Amino acid sequence: MNRPLRNAFGLASLLALAACGSSGPPAPPKEAAIAAFATVQQVFQHPRCQNCHIPGDAPLQFDNGLPHEMGVARGPTGHGAQGLPCSTCHGEKNAPASYGPHAPPGAPHWALPPPEHKMVTIGLSAPALCEMIKNKSENGGRDFAALLKHVSEDKLVLWGWEPGGNRVAVPVPHADFVAKFKLWSDAGGPCPAT
């Protein structure tokens, strides 16, 4: 076979492959994605997350989700009530250990979700939590790419793995959580049936 014919055959093969619509690796199987969602649920419903993703307007605290002391409230933007913003006590990082085990924790932009999209995780079944996470009217308008960026890069989210004091950190390693979240979202976010 002469060289021009070989090149023409190679180009034709590439064009035929492109016409088949191959656009990258296939989505993970639905069963694997639903299994990965169990890890996502474990993280979203851990006290480090659900103490702020609340149905009402008063955050919770400690590992057993007690009502926040001092009458703290969400406020109109999630940053606390007028005259008592979250930043009154919560700084940009955890207080030094010398402040004691119950010193207020801190992370950049410490706040509750705003009232128009609270992303409530408390008491939700796995299917309901799954649907809520994907619901743009509840998650701040985020698509899967924005959700993945939020859980992998947002410093307030990352605080859950280094909460300071005697708070229990999220037990799933962050990299494992992000990998499971990506597997679930790459499959289109299938929800468990029960």
Rank of each mutant, 00 (worst) to 15 (best):
V72R: 02
Y99V: 07
T194A: 15
A81W: 07
G100D: 06
V170F: 06
A179W: 09
R74D: 00
L14F: 04
L11R: 07
G75D: 01
G75I: 06
D186M: 14
E138S: 11
N94L: 07
C52Q: 00
S22T: 15
G78R: 01
L148E: 15
S125E: 12
P96W: 06
L15N: 06
A97W: 04
H150S: 08
K136C: 07
E31M: 10
V120K: 02
M119V: 10
P105F: 12
S152T: 00
C20E: 08
A145T: 15
C49S: 07
A35R: 14
H174G: 01
K180Q: 12
C130I: 04
A16H: 12
G75F: 10
L112N: 05
A175L: 01
H90S: 04
H68Y: 12
G75V: 01
I34T: 09
G141W: 06
S185C: 06
D63Q: 04
G21N: 08
S185V: 01
S23I: 09
P171F: 00
F181T: 04
A175G: 13
K93T: 15
S152Q: 01
M119R: 04
G71I: 13
L124P: 05
F62H: 14
K155T: 05
G123I: 00
E153H: 12
T121V: 06
G80F: 03
V170A: 05
S23V: 11
P190R: 09
M132E: 13
A38R: 11
G164I: 03
A19E: 04
P67K: 05
H46Q: 11
A187Q: 00
L66G: 12
P67Y: 11
P28D: 01
A58M: 11
M1E: 08
E162P: 04
H46E: 08
V72A: 07
C191E: 05
G188M: 13
M119D: 06
E131T: 08
G164T: 03
E153C: 08
C49V: 12
C130F: 10
L183T: 09
A146R: 08
M70Q: 14
Q82K: 11
C52F: 03
C20L: 14
A107T: 10
P171G: 07
G165F: 00
A126V: 00
R74A: 01
V151T: 06
P115K: 05
F62E: 14
